[in-house]
Design a protein around this nucleic acid. Structure first.
Lengths: 139, 139
DNA sequence: TGTCAAAAGAGAATCATTCTCTTTTATAAA
DNA sequence: TTTATAAAAGAGAATGATTCTCTTTTGACA
């Protein structure tokens, strides 16, 4: 997303457009590897050396709350973020903290079909993601 | 699992059998709601008022490392645990921290079949869990 | 029964994240 | 363009979940 587009989306979501917010969003999108807050802070500080830690946390919270980015579920105690909103799955490495995106439209359709027929009583589905655990082979 | 069975499994996994370890395992299994470490500590302290916080964390780490329990992936910064090892999926509430188990053997078979045919290049699958996000309806 | 490495106890330390107060600024209105 | 102001950012303190570290206890084996 270009800066202009980010601004537009921020406005759409009722958020003020600030250079810091644009920087945080761009960092998450550019890193594109489910970065932690620390990763994001380090990246941004190349451009904004003085941005406050609390600012980044607040912006991440705001962007998440408004749906510009998502938090990624992990077993670890550091929050990770994802700028890719469209439907995808995650490959989790059982040996490292690596998380990769996995796209599979056929799989998506299959799951969609399945859950259209198969109701979960007492629960209203909003989204289905696969958590695929395993090992990345050397490449 | 009965205490005797827990002891047996601890021995199998090369862990010393201690009352604290049995208590921690039983807490996770009994709570059975993906409890946080704090939930577990509170529960155990009804029986062992003096158990150390660090002890519980160490035991949780050991049980997880040896595969007696699993960590549950969440977005939050508190670790949650699951004593149910057999294949299941999780329903995540988008409004609260509630996580429920979801069993569906038909779904399991479908996913198994699918991924037997569909390789993920450079990745060796060990386990597949569905992360089903949505809302629990009032009951 | 004795030994000892591992486990538990306990409190300090760490550090990811949040809180709180002050200063700056994006945006809207005039 | 200027002004006003609520929101955002800065900055450091505070919080609390988790880990570290040292001492004491203990499970399991000989």
């Amino acid at each position: 997303m270009k800066t202009e587009e980010i601004s537009r989306v921020l406005i759409e979501k009722g958020l003020k457009v600030t250079p810091q917010r644009i920087a945080v969003y761009e960092a998450v999108a550019h890193l594109n590897n489910h970065p932690t807050a620390e990763n994001i802070i380090k990246y941004i500080r190349k451009i904004y050396p003085n941005i406050a830690t609390a600012t980044v946390y607040k912006i991440l919270d705001a962007l998440t709350e408004k749906g510009l980015i998502n938090r990624v579920k992990t077993e670890k105690d550091m929050m990770r973020y994802d700028a890719i909103l469209e439907s995808h799955h995650h490959l989790y490495c059982s040996e490292t903290d690596r998380i990769e995106d996995h796209y599979d439209e056929q799989l998506d359709r299959m799951l969609e079909d399945y859950f259209e027929k198969k109701d979960i009583p007492g629960f209203q589905i909003e989204d289905i993601k696969l958590q695929i655990n395993g090992k990345f082979l050397k490449s």
